[in-house]
Design a protein around this nucleic acid. Structure first.
Lengths: 130, 130
DNA sequence: TATCAGTTTAGAATGATTCTAAAGTGTTGA
DNA sequence: TCAACACTTTAGAATCATTCTAAACTGATA
């Protein structure tokens, strides 16, 4: 609890009730993939009612501060990942199936990066079916 | 024109006025990346007014028939790619910058595919910055 | 050419996300 | 401890891409 407060403060985030609850859930040591909606549902199960607007705000605040990764897997919702390390994903759109690939992956054969640009990150998504 | 009709027919798509116009634009020999909106704008420039609903329908019809690839690059719009071959992309969300990587890319070090699933496709997105 | 299934369309509906602006709350300095 | 203020939260409205509806239209077929 106090460590969560410290954690938030050390990331320039005022430790409000809501942020403490959300951070407590997200950063409990196990990696998670959440959407605003799934997070809201999860918190509701724990009898915490935080407005959706705040959930969106908080996810973005955490993201802006590098505490979450944003995943663009399907066009109809945004996923946030508590695993901020360099990693990739198995994903099934149909089944909402999503798991981390933590093994080091090498991408070979990339062409020259376009002029005046630089690579920000390389995202590998392995789409799965049944 | 008649070749476009044949082309549509051979893909089990009735060659309507609208589909002929859209196919004529999309499959003119140069690879294109479009969104419903950008396609609508492009057709409007050519004095073709086709309702947005039809544009959405047609893009999906073409996609369902394997004439287009669907790209999931950002959460706020869907891109369709006339290059249906196996390839990847450079992408800048900020600049709406999107180019094909046609060179063969190798992804090494993938872990075992999860039980009872199979790989549908592997998508590599190289995110660029300035 | 009549018929009918497949298409197009305007406009409404949907759903995720963002915005607004008013009320609430950490933080700071005295 | 507390006043004061900047930062947050929130309900509800607004936005925006996309899908849906159901009525009018049009290729294809006999």
């Amino acid at each position: 609890m106090n460590d969560i407060k410290q954690f938030l403060r050390s990331n320039a985030l005022r430790p409000t009730k809501q942020r403490i609850i959300i951070a407590g859930y997200l950063f409990d040591g196990t990696n998670k993939h959440v959407t605003a909606e799934s997070l809201s549902t999860e918190l509701a199960k724990r009898k915490h009612t935080i407005s959706l607007a705040t959930i969106y705000n908080t996810l973005h605040d955490f993201y802006e501060n590098g505490l979450l990764k944003k995943l663009t897997l399907s066009a109809d919702r945004v996923y946030f990942d508590t695993n901020t390390g360099d990693h990739h994903h198995f994903y099934s759109e149909k089944e909402q199936f999503l798991i981390d690939i933590n093994k080091k992956i090498k991408v070979n054969g990339l062409p020259k990066t376009p002029k005046n640009k630089k690579i920000n990150k390389i995202e590998v998504i392995v789409h799965l079916d049944k």
